[in-house]
Simulated scan of single mutants.
Amino acid sequence: MPSLEHESLAMLFHNRPSLAADILHNALKVDIPDYRRARVESGDLTEWNPAEFRADAVVVFEAAAPVLAVVVEIQLRRDKGKRWSWPVYLAGLRARTRCPAILLVICADASVGDWCAEPIDLGHPGWTLTPLVLKPEAVPVVTDAQEAARAPELTVLSTVTHGAAYDRVRMFHALLSALAALEDTDRAALYFDIVLRALPGTPATELEAMMNSDTSPYKSDLARRSKAEGKVESILTVLEVRGIPIPSEARERIMACTDVAEAQAWLERAVIVRTVDALFD
Rank of each mutant, 00 (worst) to 15 (best):
L179H: 04
L157F: 08
D114I: 12
H14A: 09
G92T: 09
P247D: 11
M11D: 14
R94K: 08
S42K: 04
A108V: 08
D22P: 06
A165L: 05
R274F: 06
A145W: 14
P245G: 00
I102T: 12
T97C: 11
E137C: 06
C107T: 02
D281M: 03
L196P: 01
P87F: 15
S234I: 15
S220L: 14
V260F: 15
R224H: 14
R197C: 03
G123F: 15
E240S: 13
P66V: 11
G230A: 09
S213R: 15
I106A: 00
A20G: 07
L24T: 01
C116M: 13
L19T: 00
A108M: 13
I235M: 14
D167E: 07
L199M: 07
L93H: 05
D56V: 12
S42E: 05
E52W: 14
A174N: 05
V271W: 12
A270W: 14
N15A: 11
E206T: 09
V273I: 14
V241I: 15
V141W: 08
T159W: 07
T215C: 06
F61I: 03
A270V: 03
P2C: 01
G92V: 11
K80G: 02
E52F: 14
E118M: 13
K231C: 03
T46L: 12
L190M: 12
H6A: 03
